[in-house]
Design a protein around this nucleic acid. Structure first.
Lengths: 141, 141
DNA sequence: TATACTGTGTATATCGTTATATACAGTATA
DNA sequence: TATACTGTATATAACGATATACACAGTATA
């Protein structure tokens, strides 16, 4: 009943968003199996040193995305989402992220080739020195 | 002394940001030549139906980016930026935009190949049916 | 130097986001 | 059914981003 989520107070990114992003990653990456019972909102609130309402918001947001299923009095579970649906959901989120980047690029008169080149650079820089995980929160240690 | 900037009240994007983005595009795209005298903050405020302070903020932000040069009592001009510097500036902005997209992609376990594929899709969709301008604000009309 | 234009600085209103406390309601089970 | 756990709803505090009014200061020029 423990979940590997790390909060970084120094980041400008809001609490609930950090938690959502990481939890979403765990679910979509299938590191949390379908049907898994998550910690109760109070339990996780204590563990992450934040309020119950913040955790509640996270669970609620992810439930409305179809990733969680909640039953009052019982708990919150990882939803059983069809692989195709889950894949579509994941894909859609990435597409939205890239649409913003492309919008910026076009406003600045980038060519498609230039954007592709920049993408490759950025990916290379992000994945260099890492083992393949999206985790850049440990500078020292 | 007229500048082709369009405000869309319906967009969630804040006023100052819409103006900044478009003006930045005009300068970096060299549609506004170096040395061009921009409309006074009061003049542009009237034209765009917003407050003087909002225009002031835009001019100030772009000045701190090195794109404008301002002289109290005289006016605001397009700065003479070295081509290399301007190019670097432009490039840097696009890189930042793509870093966010890549971060999202990695969190969702995208492979580099998948991200490249998505980028091509998004670009294709954005440039289809357009003449090459970043303008999707006219649905009717 | 008077005037009519430039940009500037201070102080403030408004709104949405983030985060919270606290009281309420459903569920499991001894 | 008592109790000890689940999630839920309402009201609100705190903050930052956005946008503003208005009084102030520099510049050009008749």
């Amino acid at each position: 009943m423990w979940i590997p989520i790390q909060i970084d107070e120094n980041r400008p990114e809001p609490l609930y968003h950090q938690i959502e992003t990481q939890l979403r990653g765990l679910i979509l990456g299938e590191e949390l199996a379908e049907g898994t019972l998550l910690p109760s909102i109070r339990e996780l609130a204590v563990a992450l040193k934040c309020s119950v309402i913040t955790i509640r918001r996270v669970y609620q947001d992810l439930e409305s995305e179809g990733l969680l299923r909640t039953r009052q009095g019982t708990g919150t579970f990882v939803a059983g989402v069809d692989a195709v649906v889950r894949e579509g959901h994941r894909h859609e989120r990435v597409v939205e992220a890239f649409e913003k980047a492309v919008e910026t690029g076009l406003q600045l008169h980038c060519t498609p080739q230039e954007m592709e080149s920049i993408l490759r650079d950025v990916i290379a820089r992000r994945t260099a020195g890492r083992k393949g995980e999206a985790d850049d929160r440990a500078s020292e240690e």
